[in-house]
Design a protein around this nucleic acid. Structure first.
Lengths: 259, 259
DNA sequence: GTTTGTGAACAGTTTCACAGCT
DNA sequence: AGCTGTGAAACTGTTCACAAAC
């Protein structure tokens, strides 16, 4: 039963609830957009709208970080950007490796948001010898043989797995052994990792299946307000995800375009 | 929102909890693997291990669907596969369009899990006229002009947005107007949609930032057991004082910015 | 004996509503 | 006046532990 150690509840976080942590990047993106427009201060109401949450939640979230607002006024945009960045650990540079340079890996490598905020793609790694040396997003693809040395030489602690499912666990094991302690997994597999290693999963087909579930409900129960696309002509009709939406945070904010 | 307490009775039907819905695809995947190995029955303990959850949660989840197990024995694999598929709406065929055929869009188009389970890529759509007609994943890319007709002709109700952030809202509006009621959004933007339309978001950079947060914590305090590879040369990362002492704004905050 | 199904206890999250500061 | 910060209430999700079914 050597595989008995998996998951995670890293709720060892000194105080900040996990749900709040998951929303901080959302706020940060909204704040960055405001900052670029040189907006000096913002109220919880405005910022919440931009981030797609409600203001009470936002204020509660910020209260875990400290008292960074001014009553009667709002929050100082630059100051908040800094505080949230620091809290998220984005004031330092995180070298990241991407393993598996297929379509998805290439997409990730080209994704602007990656590099923008504290993350730096240290290397792209693929098992196919034919890929080795080929430039993707301006970086030469390295062969899997070099995985361990790349990680050690660059002090990489975050790895992204974009390989086929069959290779994911093996890649994961090598990453962990070499010193990676956080993994973002795009392969549709459950990864086993030792305690202390964090895994987050992005699973396309799961997201689609959740949508299908709600879609089926809609079709079944025609109670729906038919919802013709009435809104959003003149006013920016804000609408909650209504029927479902779900677990995670909802919504983002306009930002720079990824390639 | 604003002022009135619009108590929306969103929960009207005998609902399966959202958290449970989000796990059903996970169970389904594990069950499918068992099915392919011709395993006839499985216990909650075994299945939970395969899906990466604990058995109590799994049993509770299944209890919302009905009593599909046999005490003293376990669950019939084939039967459960069918029940969950039906619950998720996967026994019907869902035509899907993918808009934005860059690296990511192509990756999605090629993703096997897409087609495998109830979903069928009805069309790939891109705004670039140079892309039109080019085959991606065996399908010819269609131009955005055809978006509305494609959706209507194929009865598409699920759309995937893989465009740059700047185009996402516009694409979203057109999808919704044409009849799409569920959207999977890969662009880092908040989408506004009318009530009744479901949006799920997949945001890479947010996932990475959440990992960075935990990574920073690990570096800061070597809590408990696995202190293993955490401290390797290269990722020192200064200790996060976190909420040390209290939540006074001072502490280590180097009165930056606001000036 | 084994394993499910579930009420009840517990934990985490969101919302409310208002006191307190500016 | 306006807006933050936060206890308390309401809600959602998880874990426990055991009776019931095989």
């Amino acid at each position: 039963m050597a595989t008995g150690r998996t998951h995670r509840p890293a709720t060892r976080s000194r105080g900040i609830p996990e749900a709040t942590v998951a929303r901080l990047p959302l706020y940060l993106r909204a704040l960055t957009a405001l900052s670029e427009r040189s907006v000096p201060t913002v109220s919880s109401e405005e910022l919440a709208a931009a981030a797609g949450v409600n203001s009470a939640k936002l204020r509660k979230d910020f209260s875990y970080l400290g008292s960074y607002g001014t009553r009667g006024v709002g929050y100082d945009v630059e100051y908040l950007v800094y505080q949230i960045s620091r809290e998220l650990g984005l004031t330092q540079d995180w070298p990241v490796v991407i393993v598996g340079i297929g379509n998805l890996g290439a997409a990730l490598a080209n994704y602007g948001g990656f590099a923008s905020r504290g993350f730096r793609v240290a290397a792209l790694i693929d098992a196919d010898p034919a890929m080795a040396g080929k430039p993707v997003a301006g970086l030469p693809v390295r062969h899997t043989d070099e995985l361990e040395s790349i990680i050690r030489d660059n002090g990489v602690s975050i790895g992204v797995i974009a390989t086929p499912a069959g290779a994911a666990q093996q890649v994961c094991d090598r990453l962990v052994t070499a010193g990676v302690t956080s993994i973002l997994n795009f392969a549709p597999t459950v990864l086993s990792v030792p305690e202390g290693v964090d895994v987050r999963k992005v699973d396309l087909s799961i997201e689609l299946q959740i949508l299908a579930f709600h879609e089926q409900r809609k079709a079944g129960e025609e109670t729906g307000p038919a919802a013709a696309a009435a809104s959003r002509a003149g006013t920016p009709a804000r609408t909650a995800p209504g029927t479902g939406g779900g677990k995670g945070p909802e919504g983002d904010v306009p930002a720079v375009m990824p390639a």
